[in-house]
């Protein structure tokens, strides 16, 4: 896989999957996401991304993530086959 497959979560399209690799941003954002189980190593699936907040599924939970916060979650996008 190429290097540029590491992208902010917000770049994934509906139906895409990826693995969380990093969370960038302030301490607040990081601690919040960690507590919610959005941690490096977890598989994430984008269920909806159409301009507003995005809808994801991770660890069997669903979250609505505002666009701003979704910029801070870096994922390794899975190549679609």
């Amino acid at each position: 896989m190429s290097l540029n497959s590491k992208v902010p979560l917000i770049m994934l399209r509906e139906g895409d999957e990826g693995v969380v690799v990093d969370i960038i941003g302030g301490r607040g954002a990081v601690s919040k996401l960690l507590a919610l189980g959005i941690v490096p190593g977890k598989k994430v699936k984008v269920l909806g991304n159409r301009g507003g907040a995005i809808l994801i599924s991770i660890n069997g939970s669903k979250f609505v993530v505002g666009r701003g916060l979704a910029m801070k979650v870096i994922v390794h996008a899975k190549q679609k086959n």
Partner: peptide, 20 residues
């Protein structure tokens, strides 16, 4: 109700609020 958070987020953001 919390589904409306997602559905309405784009509209809410236009008006300076968030889906929340």
């Amino acid at each position: 109700m919390p589904r409306a958070v997602y559905l309405m987020d784009k509209i809410m953001t236009t008006f300076g609020l968030t889906g929340r």
